[in-house]
Design a protein around this nucleic acid. Structure first.
Lengths: 215, 215
DNA sequence: GTCTATAGGCGGATAGAC
DNA sequence: GTCTATCCGCCTATAGAC
């Protein structure tokens, strides 16, 4: 019953060391820019072990990307399906997503760039999550928005367009902060992070302003 | 006075054929993913000619990226510096930028991804444009917003934050449309382009709603 | 499971003929 | 200016010793 023999534990450690190193290198350099030698060096193991555990660079890459996307969903988008007040939910999503990816914009950039090249192989890889988790959870959000509209709590809006507004306002300044910050001559920014953290209030106002009846 | 000898014309043609091919391939595959062989094949010329005209792959790439960024500015961001009414300007920017890059999202994606890796070499390449064109033009926009606030025409907002709102709402759904469209179970979209074109009105409303006094 | 050694291909760049 | 031929390094993947 106990399969945690020392040999098995060692395997897991090496396998995971490779995975974590691959994750780091792929995020920094992208699929094309990363080499298996880079990853092996980062993991402190021999290059051949990558193929032993993961068969090919592409397979390792897909596993890393899959993990990143699932984590992005868990840490951030899952909030949208929780049974809480719509306004509170939007505030929570904006604040939490900003907090999560502000200090780790490269991971977000990696996910968005690599998935923008989606082919059938990648789509298949996410088929399960899309059908059984991502899309059903979003549907809960769409339904909640429709209910609030019917109750007259908020102005009539297109739920998908609302979602797009929220995602856009939160994500783009994070993913492309390196460029965008150079366009800010309006004020001297000592810390871009601090600026974007404070901006969450602006984003929430912008969103809620188009929803609230008395705005 | 006439320096358009046939030999000079031929040179320009080949040089430009390479440039246009490089542009196409870099945009499709990115810097790392593109090979000089790809580019030569696309241009219908010999691989060695790339080095004859452009010295190295990196140099060719930087010239392509530079052209793309300048064109992005000319076609889209320059609007922000024109002497027109603020509300009309925002409408024009949203509609024109959407129209320009909806049918060419890969170019936008290319610019944003490659510049997100900015190092000192890239920054130097844009030093001139940043100092003498991009930033001064943006300053005109910031000033216009401030003037409208002082006149009481619009509610007090942070001009840079307003710019970020506009950019984010317009660009992210275009650059990452391939993924985002998969999250839309709310409505059956026959044509993503049509959807995003119609959405410009939503975006304009969202922006103007936070500006107008009577909203 | 982990290593060394190496296969085999593709990358960018260049020399030299025409 | 344009081509062919080639150098040389780096890449991924694998065979085989331990």
């Amino acid at each position: 019953m106990d399969d945690s023999g020392s040999s098995s534990l060692d395997n897991l450690q090496t396998e995971e060391k490779i995975f974590l190193a691959a994750r780091k290198v792929f995020i920094q350099k992208g699929f094309e820019g990363a080499s298996t030698a880079d990853i092996a060096k980062e993991a402190g193991v021999n290059k051949a072990l990558l193929n032993y555990y993961y068969r090919s660079k592409e397979n390792l890459f897909l596993k890393v990307l899959h993990k990143c996307v699932v984590e992005l969903w868990e840490k951030s988008f899952s909030i949208l399906a929780q049974p809480i007040d719509l306004f509170e939910k939007i505030k929570l999503f904006v604040n939490q997503t900003t907090e999560t990816y502000l200090s780790d914009y490269q991971t977000l950039n990696f996910i968005l760039y690599e998935t923008s090249k989606w082919d059938n192989k990648m789509i298949d890889m996410f088929k399960d999550e899309l059908e059984n988790k991502f899309l059903p959870e979003l549907d809960l959000f769409y339904k909640q928005v429709e209910e609030e509209i019917q109750k007259g709590t908020i102005k009539p809006v297109d739920p998908f367009s609302l979602l797009l507004d929220i995602i856009s306002l939160v994500l783009l300044p994070i993913t492309h902060g390196q460029i965008i910050i150079r366009l800010n001559t309006y004020q001297n920014i000592t810390d871009h992070y601090t600026f974007l953290r404070n901006r969450t209030n602006n984003i929430i106002n912008t969103i809620l302003c188009q929803l609230k009846q008395d705005c």
